[in-house]
Design a protein around this nucleic acid. Structure first.
Lengths: 227, 227
DNA sequence: GTAATAGTGTCTGTCAGACACTATCAG
DNA sequence: CTGATAGTGTCTGACAGACACTATTAC
């Protein structure tokens, strides 16, 4: 049926989460060649007999390798060349996923994987990962930082209910700069994408109201929240 | 070598240009099945024996089908499912390219193509194109419109030398709304990505200065230029 | 009361948009 | 001169950022 030899097509997922208030990425230790024993992004082949769509493939691969079910992901970029995989011309369709730590802390090694590791994104050493996965992570971070200024993306890094201060911390962590509290709150109030839960988070001091994303909200906005 | 059956991998290019002050897309009439005789985006297979990278493939496919050499293109999205192509599980890596009309008006039908057609993007009828190519075009337009507000992308739709009024017309055409002349000029002056050519465009009235993109400029900016 | 964090009110500089103005050509 | 387009100056409302202020809890 095929008229031409077609490249190997793989999927790779860049799962990002906030662990200890720092951005971490999920890496797996590869069982098989190429790059056996090395760390890389969880990925795998499209199963033409099982998957209907690319999204199906992403969900399946991710679950088989790590046990994780992702609530939010988007396609990042497709990488392809004759050189990137020793097995031949290969394509990697890369995805980025944002997850609250609570939902992924129990991730486990699965199929063809001997272990998993959460690595702080700013502590990944050059040349330590399989394939061109460092490039993929770099591009994922760039995309995230670009989108933060005009979208509500960071809410996906938090549990369902969160305080406005927690949300601000996430923005600050992703952007790498402090944000003025008053300006931040004015902005998110105006955009009106949060709703009250009626609950509060108590601690040693004044309790903070807990909010959640409005059911229909996938708001995009534009602003400069950084100093 | 391959452990699993891998999907068919194709490339599709969405070439956009300004013809008669309206956005047009390049379509080709397909010679072969599937969709023989129908219009679709120019596309083709990756040749694992000829192409080194995806970018090589895009350039080659485009040139073979239409004779066009693209000066600016970027990857749009990768589409994939078991259903989109009757030949089986298929992936399409879609690219968007912006070209000045002067560089593409001589495009010709090439390999496996019986004719080409420039179609105004707002005149494409539902169901008239092969595969999911209408979706691809729609996403390309969305991407373009989103990027226009914070990038200099539209300059690639103009010839090398152009006036500020011509540039404004392009922005207006892409965005679909009028822009205030003074605000537009203040913005592009401030961003400082154009340089004078010393030449002027004469007509019936006051001549307009011709500008060109600064050699090193790939400026991104953020503003609301629309009313 | 104090300490600490939650949350708000006010001022100010910047800038996009509105719009009127001047400049320069053909005829 | 007129007509038409090129290009500029000025005002204003909106808003991001700075920062001081009040509110509410634990102790």
């Amino acid at each position: 049926m095929k008229e031409y030899e077609t490249p190997i097509a793989t999927l790779d997922s860049d799962i990002l989460t906030l662990k200890n208030e720092k951005l971490h990425v999920l890496l797996v230790e590869r069982e098989k060649e190429p790059y056996a024993g090395k760390l890389g992004l969880p990925g795998g082949f499209i199963f033409t007999d099982q998957d209907e769509t690319l999204d199906d493939s992403v969900n399946r691969v991710l679950f088989q390798k790590t046990g994780v079910q992702s609530s939010y992901f988007e396609q990042l970029h497709t990488f392809g060349s004759v050189k990137r995989d020793s097995r031949g011309w290969s394509i990697s369709i890369a995805y980025v996923s944002l997850m609250p730590w609570e939902e992924v802390e129990n991730a486990q090694a699965g199929r063809n994987v001997t272990g998993i590791e959460w690595k702080a994104v700013d502590e990944i050493k050059k040349g330590s990962l399989a394939f061109d996965h460092e490039n993929i992570i770099e591009m994922a971070l760039e995309r995230l930082r670009n989108k933060v200024n005009y979208s509500t993306l960071p809410v996906y890094l938090l549990p369902k209910k969160f305080t406005k201060t927690q949300l601000q911390k996430v923005y600050e962590q992703v952007l790498g700069t402090p944000i003025d509290k008053s300006a931040f709150r004015k902005k998110i109030n105006e955009l009106d994408f949060l709703e009250e839960t009626g609950e509060v988070l108590t601690g040693k001091h004044r309790p903070a109201e807990l909010f959640q994303l409005k059911p229909d909200a996938l708001v995009c906005f534009r602003s400069n929240l950084t100093k």
